[in-house]
Design a protein around this nucleic acid. Structure first.
Length: 212
DNA sequence: TCATTGATACACT
DNA sequence: GTGTATCAATGAC
């Protein structure tokens, strides 16, 4: 709570206005993915220090029929969170090594999640560099990299981003349509062509932190 | 270019 | 229960 007050003072916004609300996440996944551009991911560490990154690239995984989505097998142990209430963190391991941060979307029982693919580091950058042992330009421009930099792992799976004092999302800045680029999603060659070709990847045009 | 790494889902006993 | 194919990626060459 103390950290929240500090954040509010820093951004000079009313407490109720800073965080993203449940209703934003309850929209259709591609709408949420677009709306999350320019928003800030904040992780308050046990030490009290905050890591902060601005979202510059997202992907939408929408519905059980989406053959690129973890929800394509229905409600399983892993994908259950995608069927749960919106605004929660879905963190999973891929390739045995890398954690991926997603935000659940859609009303309960309709599966959807937004994969956070790239962040622009804003706060706690020295801490991130120390942790990553990596060059600045490779800090957060990829879904696995940003999780390592932000210290986000599976222990945070299922956390309510609307209410948590550990990890949450803030309003950040508005990104106009003119600054949004859309393209097909990355790394889903196994999916049906119908879904492979959907323009469900959203990024901030020209931002240096976008992956690839 | 290619090795890494382990959870997941599914098809079998 | 056990076996195995697959994967929303990364970094060292």
């Amino acid at each position: 709570m103390k950290a929240s007050r500090q954040e509010n003072a820093r951004t000079m916004l009313d407490p109720g206005d800073v965080r993203l609300s449940r209703s934003l996440f309850a929209q259709e996944t591609p709408v949420v993915a677009r709306a999350l551009l320019g928003r800030d991911v904040v992780h308050r560490l046990p030490s009290g220090a905050c890591l902060r990154g601005r979202i510059v690239e997202t992907e939408a995984y929408h519905g059980q029929d989406d053959t690129a989505s973890h929800a394509r097998f229905g409600r399983t142990g892993r994908s259950a969170l995608m069927f749960g209430p919106p605004g929660h963190a879905y963190v999973y391991l891929i390739y045995g090594m890398y954690e991926m941060l997603n935000v659940t979307a859609n009303p309960e029982d309709f599966p959807g999640a937004v994969l956070i693919r790239a962040l622009e580091p804003l706060e706690g950058i020295e801490h991130m560099l120390e942790r990553r042992g990596s060059r600045m330009n490779l800090l957060t421009n990829g879904p696995g990299r940003l999780c390592r930099a932000m210290e986000i792992d599976r222990s945070l799976n299922g956390i309510d981003l609307v209410r948590s004092d550990v990890v949450w999302l803030e309003r950040g800045v508005e990104v106009s349509d003119a600054h949004v680029a859309v393209s097909p999603r990355v790394g889903i060659g196994y999916a049906d062509p119908i879904h492979r070709d959907l323009n469900w990847r959203f990024s901030v045009r020209g931002n240096r932190w976008v992956s690839k």
